[in-house]
Design a binder for these strands. Structure first.
Length: 290
DNA sequence: AGCCAGGAAGTCC
DNA sequence: GGACTTCATGGC
């Protein structure tokens, strides 16, 4: 068993590493062992171990408070959010109870854009493979030095790579992306990487930050290959706009089946994205059917 | 073999 | 504005 013991263990409620890893919002977490995850984000790596509400992290306390507390969205009380679900909404209550440990991570905007561009009409396993390939080919190596890990004999850590920059990806061709299994999305990524290279990403970020939700969606949809659903995913997962409610095949199926009389969009304002994740995960795991 | 996967663009009307 | 088709590709 691998031991992670740099920090004193801390207690976190309403968080399940396994549920987050399986929730389809991030595609690069890796389960190294039961309850132990390797997380790469923001050009850093982190080893995280969970036993009940007790968590151990491989970074210093200072780094955790400065970087990862925000990444895990720990300043939001998800228990209070769940308590807002209407008593007359039994399906969402069940979904939220099932996915009690899901949180909306504060991920890097560019990584989210690329990830959900690739996600369209695709399955999560293949999305993970494609993104993993992109990082191996075009991402900068990351070191796990400084992380205090007690590794069992013979255990070898995988090579770690940062998510590739727009500039790194714009150097690749559509054929290169096809070889990584991107399919027809290869040309979308080629366009996106080129238009956001050389300062384009920073400019976009600034525009999005001062745009309202509708405008942010429109800006994102103006890019080749980004439609309504992907734009909403980028707003939710890349900009942490918790009132966005991306409707994919799972959500549409749920709405048609269990919400023929409507969904409480107004009442659930500014928590819609979290509730969407509960519903998505519930259906993804096959619990919510029938 | 056909259908599905965290859909979007193109092409009709 | 819709409805319908096409787009890659692996898994079941």
């Amino acid at each position: 068993m691998i031991r992670v013991e740099e920090m004193e263990p801390i207690i976190i409620k309403n968080m399940s590493l396994k549920q987050i890893a399986d929730s389809g919002q991030c595609f690069r977490w890796r389960e190294l062992a039961e309850g132990l995850y390797l997380i790469i984000a923001m050009d850093r790596c982190l080893f995280a171990a969970q036993a009940g509400e007790e968590f151990r992290f491989s970074c210093s306390r200072e780094e955790f408070d400065r970087i990862w507390r925000d990444y895990f969205d720990l300043d939001r009380d998800y228990g209070a959010v769940r308590a807002r679900i209407s008593p007359d909404d039994p399906y969402l209550r069940c979904a939220a109870e099932y996915g009690w440990g899901i949180r909306i991570l504060r991920q890097d905007l560019w990584e989210v854009m690329v990830s959900f561009l690739i996600s369209q009409n695709n399955n999560i396993g293949r999305i993970k493979n494609s993104i993993g390939g992109l990082c191996r080919r075009y991402g900068k190596p990351i070191s796990a030095d400084g992380h205090n890990l007690d590794l069992p004999d013979g255990f070898r850590l995988p090579e770690l790579f940062a998510f590739p920059t727009p500039e790194a990806l714009s150097g690749a061709s559509e054929t290169d992306f096809l070889a990584l299994g991107l399919g027809y999305r290869a040309k979308y990524l080629k366009h996106l990487a080129e238009s956001l290279s050389c300062g384009g990403l920073s400019a976009l970020r600034r525009r999005l930050e001062r745009a309202d939700d509708g405008t942010a969606r429109e800006i994102l949809m103006s890019y080749y290959g980004i439609g309504r659903k992907v734009a909403d995913c980028i707003c939710l997962f890349g900009l942490h706009r918790d009132n966005m409610f991306p409707a994919d095949t799972h959500i549409n199926k749920i709405l048609a089946k269990h919400y023929k009389d409507g969904f409480l969009y107004e009442q659930y304002q500014d928590a819609l994205g979290i509730f969407q994740q509960y519903l998505f995960y519930y259906d993804l795991k096959g619990v919510g059917k029938e």
